[in-house]
Structures are given as C-alpha cells and as structure tokens.
C-alpha cells in the first residue's frame, strides 16, 4: 500500500489530476471566451489570457468582509476545488485506464453537487445582501436541476441493464435512442446550469447582483473559485461523454466528443438571455421533469422488450 502512495499522488496532483485538468480547463475557458467573442464580432482574448488572469488574482490582496463567517468563507472555495479535483481525477482515470468500482456513478453525482453547495456556503458566509440574494437563487437552482439530472442518470442505468459502473456504462452509446437522447439533452442543460452559464447565470447575474454569490471574494480566494470553475469545465462535459456518448474508446473520438459538448454549451450561452429564477425552476421541474419521466418509461419498455432504439 505504502509504495503506491507516490503513484496516487501523481495521479491526483499531476496527471490526470490537478495540473493536467487545470491546463485543459483554462484552455477550455479560453475557447469559451474566444468563441463567444467571435460570435459577438469581438476580437477576444489571447490563449494565455486565462492563465494570466489567475496569476494576477493570486497576486492581489484578499479582502475578508468584517461581518463574515471567516472559517467558512475561506473553506468554501477549497471544498469546491477539492471536490472537482477528485471528480476529474476519477473521471480521467475511468476514461483512460477503465479503472472502475461499482457505484462510481453515484460518487460522481455527489462530487458534482459539492461545488454548488460550497458556493452556497461561501456566499452565505460573506455577509452581503447581494450575496444573500445570490445564495437563495443558487439554492433554488440546485434544487431545480438536481432532480432532472438524477432522473437522466436513471435512464442511463436502465439502458445499461442496471449497471452502476461508469467504465461499463461508457462502453455503450446510449444517446442513439429516444430516451437516451432526451436524457442527454436535459443533462446538458443541467451541466449548463452547474457551470453557471447563461441562461442559468442567475446567481451571479452581474447586471442585477453585481456578481451575486462571488461578490465578496477577491484575490487568491477568487482565483481558487475561478480554477474550480475552469476544472468543472473539464469534468462535467467529460462526465457527459462517459455517461452518454460512449466514452474515450478511441482517443481522438473522445476528444471530438468533448469539444462537441463544449461547442453546444457555448452556443446555448450565446443565443439566450438570462432566465428568471422562477422560470428556471419551472423549466427544470415541469418541462425537463416530464421529458425525463417519459424517457424513463421508454427506457424501461425498451429494456423489457429488448428494443434498443427506445
């Protein structure tokens, strides 16, 4: 056991964990910014801009609001970062080496919720009315999209015959069926909300809440948040690739799938205005909810009668 610790540390800290994921994540966030800029007829940032941003933030003073709950205020970004780090390490290992353990999909779900919870904790610890409104919105948003996301994964599990193992699930391309496609589309929107992209950037809403949940964060702590968000930009699409699109069986195909999801996210981001929180909740619960109940039923029928395309 002891002799394997350096190996684990390498996985978590260098490849495919922290360094690798941050690298990909920052490049991905550059892609988001650059493509958005091109869509909007702007020039857009250079490739190194996200890296410079993080460096700049690390060098800035970290202000802590006086009325804040300090321990929580400091811990929240670290919790978020840790969760994403574990999630991305796990997913990369599944993608590259097919290592697996039963029920890793459940672990993935929990790890995916943690950053949002940390965000709620951190912003409610920061003693600002803007953050307070942001917190309540983030909370409602989490409640709104977690249910459809869970249902979407239920569809996956049914389609794979009760399989709870991501490496096994990644062998199948469930998106080529009606229920699988429905589940994939809804899960994509849930990922959009988890990333805080328009139309679901309700909790940050700069023109209403001036940054909302993150308003009081500055300097290194803000840099950690930004890093965590960049890593989410890797981990969440990667999860979708594994769960719905048949994983990284061929390396270039896997990368293509990841880029495809990234492009879809950017397109949704740039062709929509921000929703109101009540509209977002209604959207997830009513429309996505019904779509998924239908998908679950279809998947169950398909599984029972052995019809693959359902």
């Amino acid at each position: 056991m002891m002799e394997r610790i350096p190996q684990y540390l390498f996985w978590i800290l260098i490849f495919p964990g922290f360094v690798f994921t941050v690298l990909i994540g920052l490049v991905a966030s550059w892609v988001v910014r650059k493509v958005s800029a091109l869509v909007q007829w702007r020039v857009g940032p250079r490739l190194y801009q996200p890296f410079v941003d993080i460096l700049k933030l690390l060098g800035k003073e970290t202000l802590v609001p006086r009325g804040s709950q300090k321990a929580l205020f400091f811990a929240a970004p670290l919790i978020a970062m840790t969760a994403v780090l574990l999630l991305s390490t796990m997913l990369w290992r599944i993608a590259f080496d097919r290592i697996d353990f039963i029920g890793d999909i459940i672990v993935a779900i929990y790890l995916m919720v943690l950053p949002s919870l940390a965000l709620i904790l951190g912003s409610s610890a920061s003693a600002s009315p803007h953050a307070a409104v942001g917190t309540s919105r983030e909370m409602k948003l989490v409640l709104a999209y977690e249910l459809p996301l869970a249902l979407a994964l239920v569809v996956i599990v049914i389609k794979n015959g009760g399989q709870l193992n991501l490496a096994q699930i990644a062998q199948n391309n469930v998106v080529f069926s009606i229920s699988g496609l429905l589940a994939f589309l809804v899960a994509l929107l849930c990922v959009q909300a988890k990333l805080g992209f328009v139309p679901f950037d309700i909790a940050e809403a700069e023109t209403e809440l001036a940054g909302g949940v993150l308003i009081e964060y500055s300097g290194a702590l803000l840099a950690i948040w930004k890093l965590a968000q960049a890593m989410m930009l890797v981990a969440l699409p990667l999860f979708l690739v594994l769960a719905f699109l048949g994983g990284f069986t061929v390396l270039w195909a896997g990368i293509a799938k990841y880029v495809l999801i990234l492009v879809l996210l950017i397109l949704i981001k740039n062709t929509n205005p921000r929703m109101r929180i009540d509209q977002a909740m209604k959207f997830f619960w009513v429309y996505c909810g019904f779509a998924l109940i239908l998908a679950v039923v279809l998947a169950g029928l398909g599984n029972y009668y052995g019809i693959g395309w359902l």
Partner: peptide, 16 residues
C-alpha cells in the same frame, strides 16, 4: 437592454 438581461450577443450586434 440585451446586456441587462444577460444577452450579450444582442448587446454586441446592436452596437455594431
């Protein structure tokens, strides 16, 4: 107005 409701694409296009 587009910018205020988070629709930055409209913002940029209109100003162009």
């Amino acid at each position: 107005a587009g910018h205020f409701i988070g629709y930055d694409t409209v913002f940029m296009w209109a100003w162009k």
